[in-house]
Amino acid sequence: MSRKSTATRQAVVTVAAWTIGFLIFFPILWTIILSFKSEGDAIKAPLDVLTSTWTMESYHEVQERSNYLKHFWNSVVLSLGSTLLALLIAIPAAWSMAFVPGKRTKDLLMWMLSTKMMPAVGVLVPMYLMFRDFGLLDTRIGLVVVLTLINLPIVVWMLYTYFKEIPGEILEAARMDGANLRSEILYILTPMAVPGIASTLLLNIILAWNEAFWTLQLTTSNAAPLTQFIASYSSPEGLFYAKLSAASTMAIAPILILGWFSQKQLVRGLTFGAVK
């Protein structure tokens, strides 16, 4: 292929890729734009929206109307709490399965994964009744436990695939050089395990932040995270596009930023290591 046609080809690909990328991203972009408009302007035709004045008033109104900060904080507590708890349980498990594999390690891993296949709706009724009877409805502690359990298999799996890549020989080499157990863990294993643990943490926070079955079923207001907070906009009162946009922007912004950092880990984590 000549250099000129390669350049033309690249230009065509670039235009096509940008156009499609823009179209896919557009709903998010439009939401962000509307969040900086007044309610009256937000329902106008698209071109009139763009030329109208910009304002922050929806952000103030959202906070006043429904206490955005409380729900934001709930989302933080739920996603971070459940992730840390899951890591605490999963790190020793994944560690021992990766470094001291037994005959049944593979079966154990597959069984853990199979618990993830159970559709939530299959256990909705007993979970709801148990939460009601133990006074856990609309509490953060109850939801942290549920979110920990539903994501635990993914966390174990991700950590396992990462730990598996740490070569066992390196430990033997260190031992030959006179390292004791303490320095082995401190100077060799921990630095090698940290990147895997960090990616697992990131992916799991994203999953927990966006979880929208149990958070909708088991919370109403006190422990309600942003998923439930946004759902309250499903029954509109008067003009609300700008407020909905502001609330949506605030709900997705933190996780969008985290998500962009974790693209690569996302593939690996969500395919249980089947695609790397």
């Binding site: 990328g21 896919i24 991203f25 709903p27 439009w30 966006n210 509109p236 949506s248 997705i252 996302l266």
Partner: peptide, 25 residues
């Protein structure tokens, strides 16, 4: 940048994406 734009919808929580499409589009 194109990759970042394409991947973005995956991080939008279901209640947000549904309400944005329902109302604004």
């Amino acid at each position: 940048i194109v990759r970042v734009m394409v991947i973005a919808p995956f991080f939008v929580m279901p209640t947000v994406s549904a309400l944005v499409w329902k109302n604004m589009f």
